[in-house]
Simulated scan of single mutants.
Amino acid sequence: MHSVLMASDGREIKLFAWLPEQEVRHVMVLSHGMAEHIQRYERFALACNAAGIAVYGANHRGHGTDAPVLGHYADANGWQKVIGDLDLIIDEVAKRHTVPLVLFGHSMGSFIAQQYAILHGNKLNGLILSGSNYQHPIMYKLATLVSKIEKVRIGARSPSRFLDFVSFGAFNRKFKPPRTASDWLSRDPEQVDKYINDDYCGFPCSPQFWLDFMSGLITISKKSEIAKIPNQLPIYIFSGEQDPVGLQGKGVLALKKHIVNSGCEQVQYKLYPGGRHEMLNESNANEVFNDVTDWVTSTIV
């Protein structure tokens, strides 16, 4: 089921809801990853429902069937608009439920979730980061330079296969022999094939999208910014040990250290041996669902 919210610039936000039949004890808002869409989270949402967790989520700008331009947040201030959309959603969900609220972000969505917690952490009772990473901002500054050159070459809105290749081209190299170009997502071939055959997954994004995204990553990689997350906010970080986005675990541990060193006192993490980027779509997905719901129900009170 879904309802429609209206963003400040007139964009319609289609808010999807998965509601448990029993009493709602917690509520979770989902922030999905790059070049995918919110309906892919239904299996996870239903597992959350079974634990008494209501789940809400919407497609980020530039994603899903309603996107005017796939892979393009906005012509200007895209990162800020995405954060604004999420704030609108969280305020709406908080009106509907008076139970603890957890923000779950995967991959790109995990970085959006970090930015949200920096700005509005007082509205959250828990934060979950999946398939995430921490790197020094110099990496993002270099990517910004390349994106600016590409914007001049092809325009702000055009899908950039070059930036797509530069960003994701190396992710599959460690998985040999490769069955597809998307093996890095999961060990489960059925899930990989679903992704490949989905018209709303795996598309290249625009130079302006990358500039917006990099500006966000530069911001959240600053210790002074992460320090704005409330120190008592419970945070759970999980990832596959073979996830190239998390640098095979190194980037995930760096993220945990970055957050703990910035003052957060309740940070837990888990790395799954052999797991790849999308742990919610991995061969041990049910174990991951149980771990996430157990963390929510035991930690967030």
Score class of each variant (00 low, 15 high):
Leu217Ser: 07
Ala58Ser: 14
Gly216Cys: 13
Leu19Gln: 10
Val102Glu: 03
Leu145Pro: 00
Gly62Thr: 13
Arg179Leu: 04
Arg179Ala: 11
Asp66Arg: 11
Arg173His: 07
Leu127Asp: 05
His277Ser: 09
Val292Tyr: 06
Gly52Asn: 10
Pro273Asp: 06
Asp243Met: 03
Val102Thr: 14
Asp183Lys: 08
Ser182Gly: 04
Ser3Gly: 10
Lys250Glu: 01
Glu150Cys: 07
Gly71Asp: 06
His120Trp: 07
Phe168Leu: 10
Ala54Asp: 11
His60Asp: 11
Lys123Met: 05
Ser8Thr: 15
Phe203Met: 05
Lys194Thr: 00
Asn261Glu: 15
Ala170Ile: 03
Met28Ala: 13
Arg61Ile: 09
Leu247Trp: 05
Thr98Phe: 12
Arg153Gln: 03
Val55Asn: 08
Gln115Gly: 06
Ile90Thr: 07
Asp91Phe: 04
Leu88His: 05
Gln266Phe: 08
Phe168Cys: 09
Ile220Gln: 13
Ala76Tyr: 12
Leu88Met: 14
Ala143Leu: 12
Met279Ser: 08
Val69Trp: 10
Ile38Lys: 07
Val267Gly: 01
Lys151Trp: 03
Asn281Lys: 09
Gly10Ile: 04
Asn261Ser: 13
Trp79Phe: 14
Ile149Asn: 06
Lys257Ser: 12
Ala143His: 02
Asn122Pro: 00
Glu190Tyr: 12
Asp87Arg: 15
Cys48Lys: 03
Tyr73Leu: 14
Leu145Gly: 02
Tyr236Cys: 06
Tyr73Glu: 02
Met1Phe: 15
His136Asp: 10
Gly10Leu: 07
Asp199Asn: 14
Ala285Thr: 00
Glu282Gly: 04
Pro20Met: 01
Asn290Arg: 08
Ser206Glu: 05
Gly155Pro: 04
Asn290Thr: 10
Ile300Gly: 01
Glu282His: 06
Pro68Glu: 13
Ala45Lys: 03
Ser224Cys: 11
Gly57Thr: 13
Gly169Ile: 03
Gly126Gln: 04
Val29Glu: 02
Lys256Cys: 08
His32Tyr: 01
Arg153Thr: 01
Phe203Ser: 01
Pro273Phe: 04
Phe171Leu: 09
Asn122Cys: 09
Phe16Asn: 04
Val292Gln: 00
Tyr73Trp: 08
Gly52Leu: 08
Ser8Pro: 15
Ala50Cys: 03
Phe175Ser: 14
Tyr236Val: 00
Ile196Met: 08
Arg61Trp: 10
Phe213Leu: 13
